[in-house]
Design a binder for these strands. Structure first.
Lengths: 193, 193
DNA sequence: CAAAAGCGTTGATAAATATCAACGCTTTTT
DNA sequence: AAAAAGCGTTGATATTTATCAACGCTTTTG
């Protein structure tokens, strides 16, 4: 099960893990299984863990006063699920994270991760790399959100994340894009020509 | 002039800079002055430099087919101006960055920065810290953009960035929020009650 | 100092998107 | 096997926001 994680780390760092380092990682990251609809994080709780998804699909969302969900992140295999703000600041999260499919994760606390980073240089490397990718992806998404119409956003999303379109139903995608499911349905109908 | 940068680094890292390290930083970061409206980065160019703003105000924006500007970032003192995607991937930028006020910066290339990070541990530390803050800020902005109405977004923006409201005219703020200047004007009129 | 450019506002109208309600189909649960 | 829940779609209508044009005021520029 930890093999996927080793592969991920090696892919995103310059120096490959030694077997001692692998053993250390294996001892620290705890396996965690979630059944569909189970919560990984609930609004109001401090986000204690960061989870690497080995298998499955998850979503992160907030719920507004009217009870509507606003999906801010979708996760599948090889993604990291967490609320960084809550995890770093130790403040109660405004988000929920739950499993959309049955999911297997490897979880770690922030303290454990900081500790591991001291012992495993490749990890620091990986984190830096991840942060860069993350910043780039966020920038793109933000830019698309403030610059484009709903139609173009959906189109760009489809190009950038074909996996998500296959994996999550339309109403979830709509929420992720910040539009209603009805609007997305109509956009698709239009685009079909 | 580099003193602001030293202070910034010390504030965002655990171990303070030694005087040797300061000397090294001073030798690497080049001063750069921009007059109001001058470009720091032009669409189509690869973003070669990252600039720490010592004094002044800048904006980053894209221009769409119709010639409208979409502002994605605003910068003032102690902010870093750059297009990370272009700088890291070495791809032509889709953004422009220019000076909104006369601006003094300290600039550095990515290669120089990576080199400095090898020599100065506190810098690695600072970058990690910056990336975290950045990720949190981006998350908040994204969340606000997809979840809230224009009115709430403006309100939140005002709470989070009072400095920007004083420093940039309304039509710039409007663009940053992804709405037109007319809409922002009407929102403000409403809110005045 | 005169002209031009920048800025914020307002009105009239158009376009984009949300809301509410209903329906048919499929999948899951009991 | 029946009931319930989930999903996507459509229609009618309301709301939000954009667009276009015009104006007055201030600041900058020649």
């Amino acid at each position: 099960m930890h093999k996927n994680l080793f592969a991920y780390i090696n892919k995103h760092s310059t120096s490959p893990l030694t077997s001692e380092e692998e053993a250390l990682i294996e001892a620290t990251f705890q396996p965690k299984k979630l059944r569909k609809k189970q919560y990984f994080l609930q609004e109001g709780d401090v986000c204690k863990y960061t989870g690497f998804i080995v298998k499955g699909a998850m979503r992160q969302y907030s719920v507004d006063d009217k009870g509507s969900e606003h999906i801010v992140h979708l996760y599948i295999e090889n993604y990291w699920a967490t609320d960084r703000e809550s995890s770093i600041m130790l403040t109660p999260s405004v988000y929920n994270i739950d499993a959309w499919e049955d999911t297997e994760m490897l979880i770690i606390t922030r303290a454990e991760m900081l500790d591991l980073m001291k012992k495993i240089p490749a990890l620091v490397n990986m984190i830096q790399h991840m942060d860069e990718r993350n910043a780039i992806a966020n920038q793109r998404r933000l830019s698309s959100t403030i610059s484009n119409t709903a139609e173009k956003r959906y189109e760009e999303f489809g190009n950038n994340h074909p996996q998500f379109i296959q994996r999550f139903p339309q109403h979830i995608i709509a929420s992720y894009l910040g539009i209603t499911k009805e609007t997305l349905s109509r956009i698709r109908k239009q685009a079909m020509k």
